[in-house]
Amino acid sequence: MTDAASTSSRQAILDRLRSRPVTAPPLPDLHPAGLVAYDDPLAQFCQVATSVGAAVHRIGSLDEIGPILEELPPYRDARTRASLLPAAVPGNLDLASVDDPHDLASLDWLIAAGDFGVAENGAIWMRTAGVRHRASFFITQYLAIVISAADIVPHMHAAYERIGSTIEQGFGVFIAGPSKTADIEQSLVLGAHGCRALTIFVCGEA
């Protein structure tokens, strides 16, 4: 794919950089003292996730998800639902059967499992591993994510520590609240291009 011009630009850029050596200060250590600590990271996670627009439900078991969703009009009225936790909540669309991601345009709900939550910002780390189309997470009108109450890390340093080298396995995304914009006069509007609403289920005890 790389043509001759790009190759010579590569060399020109590297030559130019090397013709001006700059002494590099060492890469700083990332294990500081005095990082923010939360007495109750789970409570902090729930509070911040709510403040960035998510609806958070603490549940004791996965069986509680269905009844809570049934209370929500957009869920009751939804025509197309996909579930990656079919044992807990059944869906009516098998994502693996969809050949073209464009056919997901009519997807109303996706119920998925998150890896872990981050207390300081309410974000959830999501892998698209095993899901046929990455677009499912972004094209769905409504998104519900289930995480375990035991899977909360305090901050982003701990988050990347936990992700480790698995970050190299394709695609991963932190999702914090529903998609949003404030591009019109700084008025916050939920539901920009991604999900209109995000429902988080935190299952079990920390």
Binding site: V48, V52, V118, E120, N121, G122, A123, R127, T128, A129, G130, V131, R132, H133, R134, M156, T166, I167, E168, Q169, G170, F171, G172, V173, F174, I175, A176, G177, P178, S179, K180, A182, G194
Partner: peptide, 27 residues
């Protein structure tokens, strides 16, 4: 930037779009 604790989506791309991404999937 905006006084948010983090952006809504912080997306990490390693390689191109794959079907059934990740170690478990066919990739």
């Amino acid at each position: 930037a905006t006084g948010q604790p983090i952006t809504t989506y912080t997306s990490h791309f390693h390689g191109p779009l794959r079907e059934s991404d990740g170690p478990e999937g066919s990739g």
